[in-house]
Design a protein around this nucleic acid. Structure first.
Lengths: 255, 255
DNA sequence: AGGGTTCGATGCGCTCTGCATCTATGCTTT
DNA sequence: AAAGCATAGATGCAGAGCGCATCGAACCCT
């Protein structure tokens, strides 16, 4: 099957090579390349995300993920970091490539391929983001269970649904699906909490991300047995019940 | 933190929007966009992959993944399918986006961002690929355990090491890591086998992918309990021992 | 006919999870 | 000051899944 096929197309390959050798930036039309960042947080018992109100067409007035063009001498990771810094004022948080969205008609103006990233911040840092400008402190509603996947709904602080520009509802959905999948076997949950936290707070984070309640005892056992938690010796203060022990994320992996 | 930052950068955003509104394809330098496909198979007790001997510079003479430029009106998935069809003569196989590689210096000629895909084919279809032209029927040696990650080594049919062009050793390593991770909770293993197969063959595929031996009995129990296997009623023929039952991958998910 | 090899089933002990119970410790109320 | 209340945190137990060992079954070869 396919015999001689590669040989028959050999001309294509040589053609590509020579074309690149005589490289001319304006010789070929090529897609625009952007990065979009899905900034995810856990606020109370809901997922939070940062959206920007679009001022220009297309999709003027709709909500969109922070994004921007990739510069010629800039790595994709660096572009995502820059977008997060310039448009959300956030630095030094967990940031990882998610998926690349490249449907030909995803941007009505021209061909735009977007490398999507997702970032994780704890609730306090998320609440500190300035929402005076175009930034919207949104909540996410995930209309599917488990790791089914699909677009998610965004809701503004008043509980009203937000319409999302481009395929950004799909990007956010992909981010939620990815985080759900990685939660069990990577230390991703700690990124959504401050330095010190209680086991209960860690459980709430897991429950919000997964969208389902977890058994308290087995969750405690599993986390303590994982060797990722470091007891600080401190306890909660100013709570109207027995204070819980505060833990820290211990980088030492289980040996 | 970051207060007024988004507002202060508002000019950037408006600038981008107006630039795009007055879109001119040659106005801005932008990266080239390609797809590269890591075609993975299980051949005997090793991982197999398809590489092409490069004829042109850079890296002339070295081995590289099949790849090509993304056309303006073509989705990323379609580009990967086209590359697989034109350069390997393969169609209709499992194909999924892997990761996007965009380090500024990954191609010495100019900025090239590559959306990597991985494809899975069964051993028979892999062996049927024509290797008369630039195609090399290579084996993979994974120098790390579990899902540590990192580049992998390619070996030619004579057992000699192959030097890989660009960052293609990293792409192949990322593919192996991804497949290892997905093997346990997705029906990915069946893509590496023909329509009918024995439980033993399925186990060998899992062992080769994971790079470690598996317990025979618990593997059998787990697979049979998963509800993904459909007994064909047929048995192996022409083997010098008790023939094993042949199964088929049953799409009906466990209810 | 007998040996060799692999298939495929069964039984046992260990671990992990879910569920229930019980005690501990802070704040608040009477 | 004593009692009440809410949550933290430990312990016990049943069921499921996994690793390991044993044993019979079925085919080919000599």
């Amino acid at each position: 099957m396919g015999k001689r096929r590669a040989r028959a197309r050999g001309a294509d390959k040589a053609g590509e090579a020579s074309l690149l050798a005589a490289y001319d930036p304006s010789a070929f039309e090529r897609p625009s390349l952007t990065v979009d960042v899905a900034l995810i947080s856990v606020v109370g018992d809901q997922l939070g995300t940062l959206l920007l109100r679009r001022e220009a067409h297309p999709y003027a007035g709709l909500a969109a993920l922070p994004g921007g063009f990739v510069a010629m001498a800039e790595s994709l990771d660096a572009a995502a970091e820059r977008v997060l810094r310039d448009k959300a004022g956030i630095e030094g948080v967990f940031l990882e490539q998610l998926y690349t969205f490249g449907a030909p008609e995803r941007d009505p103006r021209t061909r735009v391929v977007s490398v999507a990233y997702y970032a994780l911040v704890d609730g306090r840092a998320f609440a500190a983001i300035d929402t005076g400008g175009p930034a919207i402190d949104a909540r996410l509603d995930v209309p599917w269970e488990g790791e089914t996947g699909g677009p998610v709904d965004a809701i503004d602080p008043d509980g009203l649904p937000l319409e999302l520009a481009f395929d950004h509802a799909d990007i956010l959905g992909t981010a939620v699906k990815r985080i759900r999948g990685k939660l069990d076997y990577t230390p991703i949950g700690f990124q959504l909490l401050p330095d010190r936290f209680t086991l209960r707070q860690l459980q709430v984070v897991h429950e919000v991300v997964l969208g389902r309640p977890l058994n308290k005892d087995s969750f405690r056992r599993r986390m303590l047995a994982s060797g990722q938690l470091e007891a600080t010796g401190e306890r909660q203060a100013e709570v109207d019940h027995r204070p819980a022990a505060l833990y820290r994320f211990g980088r030492r992996s289980a040996v």
